[in-house]
Design a protein around this nucleic acid. Sequence first.
DNA 1: GCGGATCAC
DNA 2: TATGGTGATCCGC
Length: 508
Amino acid sequence: MADSLNVPPQSQATDSLLRRLAGPSTTKAGLATDQTDINRVIAEASKGSKFYENEKRKDKDLTKKIERILKQRDEARKGVDIAHVEHSVDQLLAKMEAQRDLSQIIVHVDMDAFYANVELLDNPRLKGTIFAVGHGVLTTASYEARKFGIRSGMPEYIAKKLYPDLVVLPCNFGRYSEMSKKVMDIFRRYDPNMCAASVDEGYLNITHYCEEHVLTAEECVQQMRQTVEMETRLTVSAGIAPNKMLAKICSDRNKPNGQFKLDFNPQAVKAFMQDLSIRKVPGIGRVNERLLESIGIRTCGDIYTHRAALSLMDKQFGLHYLLQTYLGIASNHVEPYHRDERKSIGAERTFSAISEKEKIFKKLEEVAAELEDDMENRGWTGKTVTLKYKLDTYKVYTRAKSFDRWISTKKEDLFAIGKELLLPELPLRIRLIGLRVTKLKDLREDADSKPGGIKRVGLQLPQFVLQVHPVLRGRREKLTSTRMKGLGCHKMATRRLCPDFMMKMRKS
DNA sequence: GCGGATCAC
DNA sequence: TATGGTGATCCGC
């Protein structure tokens, strides 16, 4: 295997690269028994492709970065009293522990193989066949297909090497969106303030519901899952825990069609974190997994062991966030997505690589038209336009320009700005082009505040107040958002985002 | 403010 | 033959 990959055996890069090629979800449920064999097929199918070469490049860069970090660590340790550093970290931990809040029952719900199961619902003859959903790149693999190593995000042609008779169905977004809405409406009976994190995922706070109906959390979630299955014939897995991070991790524990509740006490939470792979933590992807692994951190328990090094390299890793992770402390604040939280809107398209100027402009024109459509339909404008392009080598570049006025959302104007950004870059051979607008302004809000219209002022919207779950009232300020640094652990990881791409899906 | 990187779904 | 699209955040400059 190592020979066929043309890299030294046993090297960290080899392992990492193989795992990367196998897809982002190799750690998920339904894993085949012989991952090595699967990895070999994938590696052979990938070998020599531009995509693969790019992955190798990124891997090499990462290896260099790791070397730098190890040097920095050794440098930082020089002449430092480690015991003293550990002691101050321990004091920080004690402060954090004192802030732990176990009062809320948070649930993360996750539809099992959502797209695949909706297809199964609509076409029972699929039952027993090995199939996936997608086009070119797979969006979802059925549980049967996962046994063969087939994963979401995997190119179709590789999946077919793993299982030649694989059936690949086109996406039917309108249908998924419709079913998603049905399921979310059931969830909302248990928490009207729930947050739909994506089409097939959500967070709920069931503290109030359980009190009101004199139910244990497990009974409540059992009932909710049964209701979903009865009313939609779809199955859902759930995690029950004192905060969103823990709930999310727990929802993976008994998948598919199962639930898992964590005990609501600090000892149980810490025991749960102790042997948990750092990769399971939302926000820690394959890059940060490798960075942490390089300094000896594989599990969340290892964070404590290496707390001195992390403290000395706070800048690189973000000590605070990792300590919270070690303790299993995270946000327990659940609220629905609000329109004004949106930060950008964009469109991008991949195609077979082209280098002719006219053809590139044609593609740019197409994404500009798509973006115009989106911005008009959803009522947005903005001040910054960012052009994105991907070379046929898979290297990605962005070029941005800001204006001191709100930009026109007409496709001709978006195209003109994109062209201006693109021209100095030519000549290029590209396989993707995209446009994105940031520094947004909500035109709908604007329309409402026009003379004669009803002015809307943020949280004073009566509908909003009614939507607020009683248990959360007055809690908003109490839950301070953590300043994240170091590891790219953004707010998304703990506060969740609720993209309105469900609306987008309704369109298609 | 810009560009590169990382991450989630 | 051949590896997606949307949106968010962080860091270094």
